[in-house]
Amino acid sequence: MSSETSDKKPVVSEGKTSGGDQINLRVRDADGNEVQFRIKKHTPLRKLMDAYCTRKGVDLHSYRFLFDGNRINEDDTPEKLGMEDMDSIDAMLFQQGGW
């Protein structure tokens, strides 16, 4: 799981950067690639999801985001889910099947 695209991308605009308010979150997909995001604790994770999907160039609804196996909804915040610095989020592609 070497992070080939592990660069920092600020989701929240810099300017009011206070050290304790922001955390780094790693988003990894099924192939083991990781992308790191910095986000404020009170910002809805919708922003992170949007940024990730835009980066991947896919529709917003094609990835499901999980934190320790629990689904992340758009209006959840890192604080609400009890996320800590450098925690990992799983971005899983939608699944389907018929036969």
Partner: peptide, 22 residues
């Protein structure tokens, strides 16, 4: 997604270690 996470890209228990705890 449990099985998918467990086995992709290859089998790795660490990916899902915290899932049952949570």
């Amino acid at each position: 997604f449990f099985y998918t996470r467990l086995t992709s890209p290859s089998y790795c228990f660490a990916y899902v270690r915290r899932w049952t705890t949570r």
